[in-house]
Computed example of a mutant assay.
Amino acid sequence: MQSEHIFKQYDAELEAVRAKVLEMGSLVEQQIVDALESLVSSNPKLAEAVIKKDQLVNALEIQVDEDCSHIIARRQPAAGDLRMILMMIKTITDLERIGDEAAKIARFTLKTVETDRMWTPRFAEIKTMANLAREMLHMSLDAFARSDATKVLPIAQMDEQVDDQYQMTIRQLITFMLEDPRTISMSLEVLFVSKAIERIGDHAKNISEYVVYMVKGKDVRHISMEEMEQEASRP
């Protein structure tokens, strides 16, 4: 009976940490949505809310990190449980960095509102890229919640689309700057936002790869799409 009680308590501790990671992911996902909306609609109050929410994300990262450390020290987990804890430690780092990128976009919004230099045509295109990156994060968190390793391939393919759109944006901005030097300042700032979105996609892809490690025990970083598909579908 004592042993059964210990196991139930252990499972409850793991589930509590897992819930915090998903809560952190939900906050970060909303940060992306709000940061982009603040940019497109030139909404300084929404931008300030995104920046403020970053403090909650940082606090959750510290909590999860401490909880995981305590579980490792007290419970000495092995096999799948240990992989899940290591996965969560890595995931919260990527989530925190995604939150930082969203906060960067929000601060840029405040800057453009103050100087009244919003350039809407380019931000409309950036919104498409940002929606892709946000969907990648949503799918990665869903894969974690469901312990579903099969999502890694479509997420990696979406990451390539984000990268392609980022490169296309760079080429367009270079063309604008060459044709009209007056656009250089704003073009560089649009490039700054585009890079933040591209980094969000990279972090979301990282999380999906951690899910494969958690479920399959296989590190799929730095491998080809074909190898990734094989590992994700392997029983």
Rank of each mutant, 00 (worst) to 15 (best):
D11I: 08
A12I: 05
A12V: 05
L14D: 01
L14C: 07
A16W: 03
R18Q: 02
A19T: 11
A19D: 03
A19I: 11
L22G: 04
L22I: 08
L22K: 02
E23A: 15
M24K: 00
G25M: 11
S26I: 03
L27N: 07
L27M: 14
V28S: 05
E29P: 04
Q30C: 02
V33N: 09
V33W: 12
L36T: 09
L36R: 09
L36I: 12
E37Q: 11
S38N: 10
S38D: 14
V40G: 12
S41Y: 13
S41Q: 14
P44T: 12
P44C: 12
K45I: 09
L46M: 13
A47P: 12
A47G: 11
I51W: 01
I51K: 07
D54Q: 02
D54K: 00
D54I: 05
Q55D: 14
L56P: 10
L56G: 15
V57P: 11
V57A: 12
L60E: 12
E61C: 05
E61F: 00
Q63P: 06
V64M: 13
D65I: 00
D67I: 02
H70L: 14
I72W: 01
A73I: 04
A73V: 05
R74I: 12
R74N: 15
R74E: 15
R75A: 09
Q76T: 02
P77H: 11
A78D: 11
D81C: 12
L82W: 05
L82G: 00
L82T: 06
L82M: 07
R83F: 13
R83A: 14
I85G: 01
I85Q: 01
M87A: 12
M87C: 13
M88E: 13
I89G: 03
K90N: 14
T91V: 12
T91N: 05
I92V: 08
I92T: 00
T93R: 01
D94A: 03
L95H: 04
E96R: 02
R97V: 14
I98D: 04
G99H: 01
G99E: 15
D100N: 08
E101W: 05
E101L: 02
E101D: 09
E101T: 11
E101Q: 03
A103M: 06
A103P: 05
K104S: 07
R107A: 09
R107M: 06
F108E: 14
F108Y: 14
T112F: 05
E114K: 03
T115I: 14
T115C: 02
T115K: 08
D116N: 07
D116I: 09
M118G: 14
W119F: 15
W119Q: 13
T120Y: 04
P121T: 01
R122H: 15
R122M: 15
R122G: 15
A124H: 04
A124P: 11
E125R: 06
E125P: 10
K127D: 15
K127F: 04
T128G: 15
T128Y: 11
T128P: 02
A130F: 03
A130D: 01
R134D: 08
R134A: 12
E135K: 10
M136W: 09
M136I: 13
L137P: 00
H138S: 06
